[in-house]
């Protein structure tokens, strides 16, 4: 594997594989790539018809690719997670999944994207919970909640610095009870829409509608802008929460695969 230290090195590698008919799952923005470069965990592995982009995380890697022909070359050893997102082009999607399975990956679960068109939501007040935008002092509480609710490999949990940035931008909302963070929703804003990145409710506080209340609170606080969320149909409670808040599937889906053994 070759370590990438500058954005232009990565761009040059992508250009070598950026051809008609290619398959890819990599679209990081320059801002996000800069973050990866700063952390020193960005690597590539190249063969004539395939570019692997590997992003180091705590104890595992995320695999991205530009593939111009199959079969895939060997994927570097180690615990590796890969997410394939695509709509349409079902044949290509099937071929890539099959090639990844041949390379040692196992499908874990599917995600679907939901959309809620612009429109105000009406929170009910939170009941026993105090809902508010998160502040700097809530970073540890929110991080801890997400770490307890999402898988460290596949949960795409934001680092504390990314979370701090989202809190500073007014995109994280929390529900507190007895001074502790009982639920939180982390969101990111784009030009005319927002996206839920994580929604979590503490185990003892589930089953009381708090997740839906947090979603309605966030929608209200962000002016009822169009909203997206990726969720797992295999987690019916979360899926139902979103549907009850007005979200519907928009045709985007993904499959998460893993290679190696989790310790």
């Amino acid at each position: 594997m070759e370590k990438i230290t500058e954005l232009n090195e990565l761009k040059a590698a992508i250009r070598r594989h950026f051809r008609g008919g290619m398959a890819t799952n990599f679209t990081l923005s320059e801002a996000e790539i800069s973050g990866e470069l700063k952390s020193g965990g960005l690597f590539i592995e190249e063969s004539p018809d395939c570019l692997y982009i590997l992003r180091e995380r705590d104890g595992h890697r995320i695999l991205n690719y530009y593939v111009n022909s199959l079969p895939l070359p060997p994927v570097p050893d180690g615990l590796t997670v890969c997410e394939i997102t695509a709509r349409g082009r079902e044949n290509l999607r099937r071929d890539i999944i099959s090639a990844l399975e041949d390379a040692g990956f196992t499908p874990l679960f599917e995600r679907v994207r939901l959309v809620r068109q612009a429109g105000r939501a009406e929170p009910n007040g939170g009941g026993a919970y105090k809902l508010s935008a998160a502040g700097e002092s809530d970073i540890a509480g929110v991080s801890s909640l997400f770490a307890s609710c999402f898988d460290r490999l596949t949960g795409c949990i934001s680092s504390e610095s990314v979370l701090a940035g989202r809190i500073a931008a007014g995109g994280v909302f929390i529900a507190k009870r007895d001074g502790c963070v009982a639920g939180a929703v982390e969101t990111a804003a784009d030009k005319s829409f927002t996206e839920i990145r994580h929604l979590a409710v503490r185990e003892n506080d589930r089953g009381r509608g708090l997740g839906g209340e947090l979603v309605r609170y966030y929608l209200n606080e962000t002016g009822g802008r169009k909203s997206f969320v990726w969720t797992e149909p295999g987690k019916p409670a979360a899926y139902k929460t979103y549907v009850n808040c007005g979200y519907t599937e928009d045709g985007n889906g993904s499959l998460v695969l893993m290679k190696g053994r989790k310790t």
Partner: peptide, 13 residues
Amino acid sequence: CDDGIINSLDIVL
């Protein structure tokens, strides 16, 4: 793009 109807991955594809 601005309304999120297509995303950055759609653009590449």
